[in-house]
């Protein structure tokens, strides 16, 4: 439990206790800025690229999902990336789901259904940590919304391995150096390598390609309503502009009598 006195009121603590606090935070938080990429869903006209999302889901399903959950996504949601009902059924059926109790009061295993939530790699936090050297792989449903750089950040982290750390920087044993991660030391081992997955559409599975695809998929997972939002927006804003114009004309006419 948190002692009330311990709870740092960041500004006051920094100001009163030690002028160092702010400076230290700034140092540790100096992750490298992710490269800005172009995404099909950028801008007010941008929409998702279904092929890219499906490739991204493939990468996620094959690689990321072994450690990361996607809490707010159910299999049925995958219709949003353009998968057909049969494809979704097939993907859901790949996992065994514990259901129950049956009429004898026992739980039982059955193949997954579209209404099931997307599979969780671990049963609980302890299991997840035990399997990952003490680190907890975060849920990724909202990761692109939870980072200022969004999908650029995910792409940058995924492709940010392999550089030699600065000479004065010591990387913790068993972890990797990744300058795009906020502490520079990341518990996730390099997850993608050339041809880690095979794309159904024949796209070459380079690390950059897979990173882009999975980042786009995660952007969809974070806000599946994006396309509908923008489409509705056009109609609404166009309507409102006309409405405002008409109201302005009415106002002019009404007030003309006064001047």
């Amino acid at each position: 439990m948190l002692g009330r006195l311990q709870i740092a009121f960041v500004g006051l603590a920094a100001m009163v206790a030690s002028p160092m606090v702010g400076a230290m935070a700034a140092e540790a938080g100096k992750a490298r800025e992710p490269t800005e990429l172009e995404w099909s869903f950028d801008g007010i006209f941008g929409q998702f690229d279904r092929a890219e999302l499906q490739r991204g889901f493939h990468v996620f399903n094959q690689v990321c999902a072994n450690c990361h959950s996607l809490e707010h996504i159910a299999y049925r949601h995958l219709s949003g990336i353009g998968l057909s009902e049969d494809e979704i059924k097939a993907i859901a059926a790949e996992v065994e789901v514990t259901d129950g109790p049956d009429e004898f009061g026992d739980n039982f295993q059955r193949p997954g259904r579209p209404s099931d939530p997307y599979r969780h790699p671990f049963d609980n936090e302890q299991q997840a940590r035990a399997a990952n050297g003490g680190a907890l792989p975060p849920d990724l449903t909202l990761i692109t919304k939870a980072r200022p750089a969004g999908p650029d950040y995910v792409h940058a982290v995924l492709t940010g391995y392999g550089e030699a750390p600065p000479s004065e920087f010591e990387v913790t044993e068993g972890k990797d150096y990744n300058p795009y991660f906020k502490t520079w030391t990341i518990a996730m081992a390099e997850p993608l390598f050339e041809d880690a997955v095979e794309y159904a559409d024949g796209t070459e599975a380079s690390v950059d390609q897979m990173s882009r695809d999975v980042s786009a998929f995660l952007a969809w997972a974070a806000e599946p309503e994006l396309e509908r939002r923008k489409q509705t927006g056009f109609v609404v804003v166009a309507f409102l502009i006309i409405l405002a114009g008409l109201l302005y004309a009415s106002k002019r006419q009404m007030w003309a009598k006064l001047h």
Binding site: I44, V236, A244, L247, Y248, K251
Partner: peptide
């Protein structure tokens, strides 16, 4: 009528943020 016109302009800006930069 003047407030309605003001509201119209306001709604354009408000809707633009809600739909395009939520």
């Amino acid at each position: 009528v003047k407030d309605s016109f003001g509201l119209g302009v306001f709604l354009v800006i408000f809707a633009a943020v809600v739909f395009f930069a939520p």
